[in-house]
């Protein structure tokens, strides 16, 4: 695992907590492979998914060109970080 990727994941966790108002969570509560959506993990909803798309564009200048890939990309912090690194 690259140091860059590790830093990015910690940054993403902090940004998600702030942007999605996840006040019950600390960065240390979120594991890299926790599911972001569904009943387990962070249990985010469809509005959160839209906020993550906005966050990707605002913070990293990355547009999600293919919405069909959204589910795969937003599976976990790990998959999000991998996507950002690929697109940078």
């Amino acid at each position: 695992m690259s140091t860059l990727n590790k830093e990015l994941k910690e940054e993403l966790k902090a940004k998600l907590i702030e942007q999605l108002n996840l006040e019950d969570f600390e960065v240390s509560d979120i594991n890299d492979n926790d599911l972001l959506f569904g009943g387990e993990g962070l249990a985010l909803d469809s509005i959160d998914a839209l906020e993550i798309i906005v966050l990707l564009e605002k913070e990293y200048g990355i547009k999600l060109d293919d919405p069909k890939k959204g589910k795969e990309i937003m599976q976990s912090i790990q998959t999000l970080a991998d996507f950002i690194e690929r697109k940078r």
């Binding site: 999605l20 509005i47 839209l50 906020e51 906005v54 564009e57």
Partner: peptide, 10 residues
Amino acid sequence: EDIPSPAVFV
């Protein structure tokens, strides 16, 4: 003015 927030819109 920037990218509008879906979470605020709802």
